[in-house]
Simulated scan of single mutants.
Amino acid sequence: MKYQNSQNWQALVGGIIAAALILLSFSSFVIINPGQAGVISILGKARDGALLEGIHIKPPLISVVDVYDVTVQKFEVPAQSSTKDLQDLSASFAINFRLDPTQVVTIRRTQGTLQNIVSKIIAPQTQESFKVAAARRTVEEAITKRTELKQDFDNALNERLEKYGIIVLDTSVVDLNFSPEFSRAVEEKQIAEQRAQRAVYVAREAEQQAQADINRAKGRAEAQRLLAETVREQGGPLVLQKEAIEAWKQGGAQMPKVLVMSGDSNSSVPFLFNLGDVAQEPTLSR
């Protein structure tokens, strides 16, 4: 009986030891997946050398592995600044970045979590970089040279974040706002420019109309000159008589019933006489 109890205790202890060994064996390595980097801390002290993707051995029970996501992260960060002409300017930036896998140990020692990186590093450095870019130009240049403004911002932000092990991949200006006073000034300027453009258009239209009138007058004068030359070349009086008849027709009046030609050879225009008008006159009493 005693022998049997002894065997049971030995089996129980053996099972506990085996379970402990299995547990220790599982806690003696860590798997780092693609897109991750790990930092191993032994007794609370971060060990040099980042753990990249793969299987890594670590001391059981006394070590902890902090895993960081080193894929692309995106955060929107607001920023405010003053321009060169002391106008208020605010913006919101979308920043795509990732952590340098080889620098995660330094990041773990200095910043800790990803939330700390955003709030303590990226947000304030975004603010300072925007101040540098905005102070180089006026508020109007911030609109007309927006690409240059963004380039200055990118350069300043990359330089500031690189030393923290943060790689900036891309930035974009989500929103760019100006003070209400400047917005009103821009609106009034646009209205004034539209009115000025309208005035220029009206002036050009009047100038074109005046030039058209001049051209028509020149055309009529030239036509009259050519007509006079034609009259002289083709005998004169007969042509003038024909022109007088055509002018009468074009005037819309009814042609007279009687056409009297002057016997004077120097007369060029026919004398038009309507017998109907004579018939309507009262007869003189004798």
Rank of each mutant, 00 (worst) to 15 (best):
residue 152 D to N: 10
residue 153 F to V: 02
residue 154 D to G: 00
residue 154 D to S: 05
residue 155 N to F: 11
residue 157 L to S: 07
residue 158 N to A: 05
residue 158 N to E: 01
residue 159 E to A: 08
residue 163 K to F: 04
residue 164 Y to E: 00
residue 165 G to V: 04
residue 166 I to L: 05
residue 171 T to V: 03
residue 173 V to W: 06
residue 173 V to R: 11
residue 174 V to R: 14
residue 174 V to C: 02
residue 174 V to M: 06
residue 177 N to H: 10
residue 179 S to Q: 06
residue 180 P to I: 06
residue 180 P to W: 12
residue 183 S to M: 09
residue 184 R to H: 09
residue 185 A to C: 04
residue 186 V to N: 11
residue 187 E to V: 07
residue 187 E to A: 12
residue 187 E to D: 05
residue 188 E to P: 01
residue 188 E to R: 15
residue 188 E to V: 10
residue 191 I to Y: 14
residue 193 E to L: 13
residue 193 E to M: 11
residue 194 Q to W: 13
residue 195 R to H: 13
residue 198 R to G: 04
residue 198 R to S: 05
residue 198 R to F: 10
residue 201 Y to T: 07
residue 204 R to F: 08
residue 206 A to T: 11
residue 206 A to Q: 13
residue 209 Q to A: 11
residue 210 A to K: 15
residue 210 A to F: 12
residue 210 A to E: 04
residue 210 A to P: 00
residue 211 Q to L: 02
residue 211 Q to D: 01
residue 213 D to L: 07
residue 214 I to W: 06
residue 214 I to C: 01
residue 215 N to S: 07
residue 218 K to Y: 10
residue 219 G to D: 05
residue 220 R to H: 10
residue 222 E to Q: 12
residue 224 Q to T: 07
residue 228 A to V: 08
residue 230 T to R: 15
residue 230 T to S: 06
residue 231 V to R: 15
residue 231 V to D: 02
residue 234 Q to S: 03
residue 235 G to T: 10
residue 236 G to T: 08
residue 236 G to V: 05
residue 237 P to A: 13
residue 237 P to T: 13
residue 238 L to G: 10
residue 239 V to H: 09
residue 240 L to H: 11
residue 240 L to V: 08
residue 241 Q to T: 09
residue 241 Q to I: 01
residue 241 Q to M: 06
residue 242 K to Y: 13
residue 244 A to C: 07
residue 248 W to Q: 03
residue 248 W to V: 02
residue 249 K to N: 06
residue 249 K to I: 09
residue 249 K to T: 04
residue 249 K to H: 13
residue 250 Q to D: 01
residue 251 G to C: 04
residue 251 G to V: 03
residue 253 A to T: 10
residue 253 A to S: 11
residue 255 M to I: 10
residue 255 M to A: 07
residue 258 V to S: 05
residue 258 V to Y: 12
residue 263 G to P: 02
